[in-house]
Design a protein around this nucleic acid. Sequence first.
DNA 1: CAACAGTTTAGAATAATTATAATTTAGTTT
DNA 2: AAACTAAATTATAATTATTCTAAACTGTTG
Lengths: 142, 142
Amino acid sequence: MQKNIEFIDKLRSSGLRPTKQRLKICEVLFNREETFHFTIKDLVKKISDNLNEKISLATVYNTVHAFKDKGYLKEISINSDKSYFDTNITNHHHFFDEDTNQLIDCEDDYIENINIKKNITGKKINSVEVLIKVASDNQNQN
Amino acid sequence: MQKNIEFIDKLRSSGLRPTKQRLKICEVLFNREETFHFTIKDLVKKISDNLNEKISLATVYNTVHAFKDKGYLKEISINSDKSYFDTNITNHHHFFDEDTNQLIDCEDDYIENINIKKNITGKKINSVEVLIKVASDNQNQN
DNA sequence: CAACAGTTTAGAATAATTATAATTTAGTTT
DNA sequence: AAACTAAATTATAATTATTCTAAACTGTTG
Ligand SMILES: [Mn+2]
Ligand SMILES: [Mn+2]
Ligand SMILES: [Zn+2]
Ligand SMILES: [Zn+2]
């Protein structure tokens, strides 16, 4: 449970002005125990749930991209028409529940270390991410 | 190098009428040695390069989705605003070259087997895909 | 050939995202 | 504290990928 003053420092230290919109978004994103995986739409909903005054959609996009650029958020690849973002910025893998469209972190002890034995010549590896698509186990699924 | 008659059989056998648009798209997609990774835009370009008469954009979308539904194409998850498709429908991993935005198949001998040690309860695993993002190796990159 | 379902098509509609340009605000300088 | 300036917010327009619609066209079957 971070204090407002901590968010102000965090923003200032990366050259972002601590506006009230950014602070509110910090609260929503980072004042939580668990990792938050979200789309812009999810975030807008959380904001309007927690807030009497509204933040413009453009500002939500601007802020999420600024936070991503500063390394406070990660963008996640899902086969979908929209972007997902992740408050867990470490290198990690995901389950994607195709029933609920939910992203879930894959803990390190769920998967053996990935070993890339060969790489493309002249290129360096920036990330290695596993996406495990799961769905309901029962026979009669739609 | 498949013959037109083979595509006609292929389409008929999955309940798709062999129209001239579908046959042309089959040629572009499947008359090649190498796997083809493409976006709809890429495919439209290939079609107009190879063809004097044009195929409507709606038909290209319809056909790609029909081929995907029949299992002749695979849709690939890339962090992007557009979908990629793949003529390699086997279970396999990818390199994504962030310099060129190109998808490249990761041969089996490039990566050790992925072992998912635990799964989410009540769910079955539908796919496990690794995405290796690579980029230029040199220091002075923009 | 006639009939009919399947397919193609232009164009409209939708949805996510980005751009624009005017207004407001945060931080700095007088 | 008032003035100044660059950064940020905002409503709104623009863009892009994709899907929908409904009319015209075509492949298949009898
Ligand atoms: Mn899609
Ligand atoms: Mn994006
Ligand atoms: Zn995550
Ligand atoms: Zn592939």
